[in-house]
Design a protein around this nucleic acid. Structure first.
Ligand SMILES: Nc1ncnc2c1ncn2[C@@H]1O[C@H](COP(=O)(O)OP(=O)(O)OP(=O)(O)O)[C@@H](O)[C@H]1O
Length: 625
DNA sequence: TGACCATTATCGGGT
DNA sequence: ATAATGGTCA
């Protein structure tokens, strides 16, 4: 009830504008605000408030977060409001979030849940396979070859991005055929057709299909749509500026048209995923799409110093197409933004490491620091130097868990067990470890192949009454996978560790489908642990939504940041500016911009020019070291 | 079939 | 400069 102790607690610690946004539970709401103004905080409190007020049960709230990590954080913060035990949550955040907040997650994980529930409508088996980008690429390459094209002339990557782009715009091959121009797109269309047919045969969906299929489901079946409208009393979407067309449609389809209880949160200045179809006009058009909407603007930044806020604003103000937005802070002015020009990338990394070690002496922890860069390739030199200087670090975003070979190998068994139609996984599993069954033997068939199929069928029968970890143990015993990867070398040891990590993860799940889905959909940032006492190394993109006391932006050079490929198009340069704004505003107290005057690119030494972003910041906010 | 070697792409970001 | 892919040969 309003004024009840719980509601009071939920509203405590919010400023006036934030409180208003939290209290405006009903009807369409847009929270449009700059960095560090407490948007995510608002969303969390809003969810808590709705539950505390008894306006909806936790399973009646659909909340889309940008990462799985954010979903878990949301769950963690409302544990006490739900009257549940914090220990339970901490023991297994995954299971806890699934159980108590089944509809809090990323677009992709929410879609999987809907599709699993409604699979029959779409003629899919319940345990359909999720293709990740690697699987998609392999399939695409195979089709290109099958159709008689040379993968060297028709780049599988380029075709992938055409197909993905089409799906993000909700274009089926038929729809896409209307836009085709030129030879390459003609071929891409042909591949798209075949690719889609192949996925159906395999009972598989790729990442983009997860969204597109859900949209189709909801468009095609009004009764399914109505069911979810009843289920979801409240819908909330965080980071709405980074939704693509398919996600935008999906949001509208999932919102009850009568109540229109939809709250979207975001900042058009922080739209950094345009390259994968995100369109920040979605957030700017919210008023047009929902004329009854109320708009809340939060203008006070609680995160950063005045100098950081001012500097970041100056970079982003050069963008022509943007909303007008105020952002101020009561925080101290803080030290100027430090700029350091190193002679080369090693010297740059040494400066960063030395600076961190120096500041560490002034009472900082290692996890107060982050080094952010434009391209993942930059992490290598930083790692090398950090290692030699004894600076503990955690690298985020390099290799996703699922992309490790051992994980993919074992998942292929599990996928095939769950979905016998998935011959893609079958073909991988049957010869991992090598059993002398290559493509030729497979085609001919015969005893060896039948034996494997029979063995798998046996495990499949038993699997029905087993937990995910038990099934995985069976697979490991059957394949003797561990002894296959453990060759006694340190690398072999690492591979065994990967297997064990997968086993541990499996033990956190109750259903095989959920376990596999989790492994396929988690990103590397999801494993980022803010408590681990180490310096964080990650891409600027991956840093979205996070905050650190001290931030270094490495490689502030023309051609690297802003990136070479963004120099020509204004829209792309705008996105680089927004990325700069995002990256700068991750910092609470101190911000460094560093660069190398010489850098090795593609094996050749190149002279560099300092990034225009440094020039665009008022010189008296900067301290050139 | 699978190991080995040459050639080629990669280094733009990621669910 | 390195990783991945593809072709060749045992
Ligand atoms: N009313 C408030 N009083 C004190 N601190 C606040 C308040 N609101 C937000 N904060 C703090 O400000 C910081 C930023 O909040 P939050 O991450 O919710 O902002 P955001 O708008 O989502 O940021 P961004 O868009 O940059 O990711 C957090 O540390 C949060 O605890």
């Amino acid at each position: 009830m309003p004024g009840s102790p719980v509601s009071e607690a939920v509203l405590g610690g919010l400023n006036l504008a934030q409180k208003e946004a939290v209290l405006a539970t009903d009807g369409p709401v847009l929270i449009l605000a700059g960095a560090g103004s407490g948007k995510t905080k608002c969303l969390t409190h809003r969810l808590a408030y709705i539950v505390a007020e008894g306006k909806a049960e936790t399973n009646e709230i659909l909340a889309i977060t940008f990462t799985n990590k954010a979903a878990q954080e949301l769950a963690g913060r409302i544990v006490n409001i739900l009257g549940l035990s914090l220990q339970d949550f901490q023991r297994n955040p995954n299971l806890f979030t699934r159980r108590y907040l089944p509809w809090v997650g990323t677009f992709h994980s929410i879609c999987v849940r809907i599709l699993r529930a409604e699979h029959e409508q779409l003629g899919l088996p319940k345990s359909f396979t999720i293709f990740d980008s690697d699987d998609s690429l392999t399939l695409t390459r195979g089709i290109i070859r099958n159709l008689g094209y040379d993968p060297k002339q028709i780049s599988p990557n380029a075709v992938r991005s055409v197909i993905s782009g089409a799906k993000n715009e909700l274009l089926s091959p038929e729809d896409y055929s209307k836009y085709v121009q030129g030879y390459f797109q003609q071929v891409a269309l042909e591949v798209y057709r075949k690719y889609q047919r192949r996925l159906v045969e395999l009972s598989a969906l790729d990442f983009d299909d997860l969204i597109m299929a859900t949209v189709k489901l909801l468009e095609q079946f009004p009764e399914v749509r109505a069911k979810y409208h009843q289920q979801f009393k409240y819908v909330m979407v965080d980071e709405y500026q980074d939704t693509n067309h398919a996600q935008y449609r999906l949001t509208a389809l999932l919102t009850n048209p009568k109540s229109q209880n939809l709250c979207v949160v975001g900042d058009d200045y922080q739209s950094i995923y345009g390259w994968r179809g995100a369109n920040f006009q979605n957030i700017l058009n919210f008023n047009r799409d929902f004329p009854a909407s109320k708009v809340y603007k939060l203008e006070q930044n609680y995160r950063s110093t005045k100098n950081i806020i001012l500097g970041a604003a100056q970079v982003v103000e050069r963008i022509k197409r943007r909303s007008e937005k105020k952002l101020w802070t009561d925080n101290e002015e803080g030290p100027p933004i430090s700029v350091y020009e190193a002679s080369n990338a090693y010297a740059e990394a040494e400066f960063v490491a030395t600076e961190i070690r120096g500041l560490k002496g002034y009472g900082h922890n290692w996890n107060d620091f982050a080094v952010l860069y434009r391209t993942n390739a930059q992490s290598r030199i930083l790692e090398e130097i950090f290692l030699s200087q004894g600076v503990p670090y955690r690298l985020v975003g390099a290799l996703r868990f699922y992309e490790r070979k051992e994980v993919k190998d074992l998942l292929s068994y599990l996928r095939y067990l769950a979905n016998p139609g998935d011959t893609h996984s079958f073909e991988r599993a049957i010869n991992t470890p090598p059993r002398g069954i290559g493509p030729k033997t497979l085609e001919k068939g015969g005893e060896k192949v039948d034996k494997f199929k029979d063995d798998m069928e046996q495990i499949r029968t038993q699997a029905a009454s087993l937990t995910p970890v038990e099934i995985l143990e069976k697979v490991l015993a059957f394949s003797r996978y561990k002894s296959f990867v453990d060759d006694g070398t340190p690398e072999g040891e690492g591979r065994v560790e990967n297997v064990e990590e997968l086993v541990n993860l499996a033990s956190e799940f109750e259903s095989l489908d959920e376990f596999m889905e989790h492994v396929t959909l988690i990103s590397d940032v999801d494993n980022y642990d803010a408590r681990a006492d180490a310096v964080t190394l990650m891409s600027m993109h991956a840093s979205k939504g996070l905050e650190f006391t001290v931030v270094f932006l490495a490689g502030c050079e023309e051609g690297l940041f802003p990136h070479m490929r963004a120099l020509e198009e204004e829209a792309e340069m705008d996105e680089e500016r927004r990325l700069c704004y995002v990256a700068m505003t991750r910092a609470r107290k101190r911000l460094y911009l560093t660069l190398a005057r010489q850098r090795v690119i593609h094996g050749g030494l190149t002279n560099t020019i300092p990034s225009r972003f440094i020039r665009e910041i008022d010189q008296n906010l900067l301290d050139m070291i």
